[in-house]
């Protein structure tokens, strides 16, 4: 009985298309949520380091002084914690899988020139503000001291 049951199946299989895909001729279809690898849009990143803090495997290294954002894709476990945490929404989980390799590489992303200028401008404004605040504080202190003297 069981054998007859399976013979039907075998005959059907003989005349139907294979269930496996003819990869790479036929490309893989990724779903909208497939977690492949992490990319960073360096035109938006502010090197705040939140992603580095959130990453459970320590795959991300952010260097403010050098203006770089680096990831070791072979340490990354595709958990998306960095993507969820990024305040600038510049990280994205791409669908294609990380390409295989012979050695454990580190991918380094440099800030774009435009973003570097923007950040420098922001830093300058922040420094000016801080200097102004400091000057105001000093003036206030001096005024107080003057008040006490008279």
């Amino acid at each position: 009985m069981g054998a007859i049951n399976y013979t039907g199946k075998v005959l059907k299989n003989l005349f139907s298309k294979p269930s496996t895909k003819r990869y790479p001729e036929e490309p893989i279809k990724f779903t909208d949520r497939t977690r492949g690898h992490i990319e960073n849009d360096m035109d938006k990143c502010v090197l705040c380091g939140v992603c580095q803090m959130r990453c459970p495997t320590g795959a991300i290294k952010v260097s403010k002084s050098e203006g770089t954002w680096a990831i070791s894709p072979f340490s990354c476990i595709q958990c998306s914690a960095c993507v969820d945490g990024c305040p600038k929404k510049c990280l994205s989980m791409e669908h294609e899988y990380q390409e295989p390799g012979n050695e454990k590489i580190t991918k380094v992303f440099d800030l774009t020139e435009a973003q570097k200028e923007r950040l420098a401008e922001q830093a300058r404004i922040a420094a000016e503000k801080a200097a102004a605040a400091k000057a105001a504080l000093a003036a206030k202190k001096a005024a107080e001291e003057n008040g006490q003297n008279t």
Binding site: T31, R33, T34, Q78, S80, M93
Partner: peptide
């Protein structure tokens, strides 16, 4: 699973 969570084996 892949459609729902993005992973086939580990879903996170």
């Amino acid at each position: 699973f892949e459609e729902a969570t993005g992973g086939r084996v580990i879903f996170s």
